[in-house]
Amino acid sequence: MTLPTVLFRALPNLITAARLALVPVVLAAIAREAWGAAFLLFALAGISDGIDGFLARRYALATRLGAILDPLADKALMLAVLVSLTLVGLTNTAS
């Protein structure tokens, strides 16, 4: 297999890994109360979830690793954003 073929076959998992890597970046934006950046990054993560799923199904690129990473990335992002927004809201109301 050539390198482009290997990269294409791994593309859904690479997109999922990038979404997982976005979690701390989104959290940092929320902590700084940079709401526009936090929203754009969160939206980018959501769009990437649709893209990696589409690629995996459309081109039969689904893997066992992807089946584990994809829901993990989704849950990590949602839980981290929920907790961080709650904490930011609590600290703002306590001031």
Rank of each mutant, 00 (worst) to 15 (best):
Ala10Glu: 04
Leu7His: 10
Ala56Asp: 01
Pro12Ala: 00
Ala21Phe: 07
Leu3Gly: 00
Ala10Ser: 12
Gly53Ser: 14
Gly66Lys: 05
Ala80Trp: 03
Leu44Tyr: 06
Asp70Met: 08
Ala67Gln: 06
Ala34Leu: 09
Ala34Asp: 15
Ile51Phe: 12
Gly46Leu: 09
Ser48Pro: 06
Ala38Phe: 08
Leu55Tyr: 07
Ala38Thr: 12
Gly53Trp: 04
Ser84Leu: 06
Gly46Asn: 12
Ile30Gln: 03
Leu61Glu: 01
Ser84His: 02
Gly46Trp: 09
Ile51Asp: 13
Ala28Ile: 10
Leu72Tyr: 13
Val88Gly: 11
Thr91Cys: 04
Arg58Ile: 05
Met78Val: 13
Leu55Trp: 08
Leu3Ala: 12
Leu90His: 03
Asn92Ile: 05
Val6Glu: 04
Phe8Ala: 03
Leu22Ser: 03
Arg32Leu: 01
Leu77Trp: 09
Lys75Trp: 06
Ile51Asn: 12
Ser95Asn: 11
Pro4Lys: 08
Ser95Gln: 08
Ile68Gly: 00
Leu90Met: 09
Ser95Thr: 09
Pro24Ala: 01
Leu7Met: 12
Ile68Leu: 15
Tyr59Phe: 15
Ala21Thr: 03
Leu82Thr: 12
Phe39Cys: 14
Ala76Ser: 15
Leu40Thr: 14
Leu87Asn: 03
Asp74Trp: 05
Val81His: 04
Ala45Ile: 09
Val83Gln: 07
Lys75Met: 13
Ala18Gly: 02
Leu20Asn: 02
Thr16Arg: 00
Val88Asp: 02
Asn13His: 09
Met78Gly: 11
Val25Ala: 02
Ala73Pro: 07
Leu11Phe: 06
Gly53Leu: 10
Pro4Arg: 07
Ser84Tyr: 00
Glu33Phe: 04
Leu90Asn: 04
Leu44Glu: 04
Gly50Phe: 09
Arg32Ala: 15
Leu61Gln: 03
Ile15Asn: 02
Leu79Lys: 02
Leu11Gly: 03
Gly50Tyr: 12
Ala34Arg: 09
Leu44Ile: 09
Thr91Gln: 13
Ser95Leu: 05
Tyr59Ser: 01
Ala80Glu: 01
Gly53Asp: 10
Leu90Trp: 00
Leu20Met: 15
Val25Gln: 05
Gly89Tyr: 08
Ile51Gly: 09
Arg9Ser: 06
Leu82Gly: 10
Asp74Leu: 06
Leu85Trp: 07
Phe8Trp: 07
Ala60Leu: 05
Tyr59Glu: 00
Ala34Lys: 08
